[in-house]
């Protein structure tokens, strides 16, 4: 049986020598259970050790290996080569982020955004002793659970034309994370000051692609639209703050 192969066209960018990324082609074995990430690992291990990319858990939970695969932002560990028939498959760094090297993008801006929404439980008063938990019913847990599933893979940013055109836009994952805490029955904040901004929820034009590409079904688009309602009501009815 002749071993089947598939061509991967991989974006290379070496800042010391390249002015802009160029595609480099590699032939890798096409195996039914190989993900795109396995193809990249094969290149790094056996064909070209100079290829740089991030990966870790290869089970879709660490959020490292998001890349642009044939024009779509995907987690490469969960995207199978067999999806692409005879190939070739074009693999590029996530769009919308500065490229540090090859398939590695700069995510510091994203982290700054996450930090800016106060993504922690905001409580008033003293923390009670560590003898009992705050009560939370399954229904109250359900109210925010979906928004707590974000793995920070940033596919939603890459899919969002608003973010790609305007890097200052707070973006889907950060707003969903803010909502994860806003809707938590134990939280006492509504993060109005950081969300009720033109670069925050009001920048969103509800394209909806963030939700479409989210591998964890977080539905950031929903989180944003819901906050628009919250913020609008709070603006019209100033006494309606929580």
């Amino acid at each position: 049986m002749a071993a089947e192969t598939i061509r991967l066209d991989v974006a290379r960018y070496r800042p010391e020598e390249d002015a802009e990324p160029v595609l480099q082609s590699y032939e890798v074995p096409l195996r039914p259970d190989w993900a795109v990430l396995d193809g990249l690992a094969h290149i790094k291990d056996h064909l070209d050790g100079t290829l740089s990319f991030r990966w870790s858990c290869r089970m879709g939970i660490c959020g490292s290996c998001g890349m642009d695969v044939d024009g779509e932002p995907r987690l490469t560990c969960g995207t199978f080569l067999a999806e692409y028939g005879a190939g070739p498959v074009r693999i590029e760094p996530l769009k919308g982020f500065p490229v540090i090297r090859d398939l590695v993008v700069d995510i510091d801006g994203f982290l700054a955004k996450l930090s800016s929404v106060r993504p922690w439980l905001v409580r008033e008063g003293e923390e009670p002793p560590l003898t009992a938990e705050y009560a939370q019913t399954p229904a109250q847990l359900d109210a925010y659970k979906q928004y707590s599933m974000c793995i920070n893979c940033m596919l939603c940013y890459s899919a969002c034309p608003v973010y790609v055109l305007d890097p200052d836009f707070l973006g889907p994952a950060a707003i969903a994370l803010a909502q994860r805490y806003n809707l938590d029955s134990r939280d006492m904040d509504d993060r109005f000051d950081v969300l009720n901004l033109e670069e925050a929820v009001w920048g969103c034009t509800f394209v909806g692609d963030c939700t479409r590409v989210c591998p964890k079904h977080v539905d950031p688009a929903e989180a944003i639209q819901r906050y628009k309602v919250t913020a609008a009501l709070r603006s019209v009815l100033p006494w309606s703050g929580r």
Binding site: Y13, P15, D18, E72, G96, P98, I100, P161, G208, D209
Partner: peptide, 22 residues
């Protein structure tokens, strides 16, 4: 070393069906 920043894509809405529909 300077990171590469992609220039603005004028035809962003033509890249994906979902964006065209949007």
């Amino acid at each position: 070393a300077r990171p590469y920043v992609r220039p603005r894509d004028r035809w962003w809405f033509a890249r994906r069906r979902s964006l065209a529909v949007f």
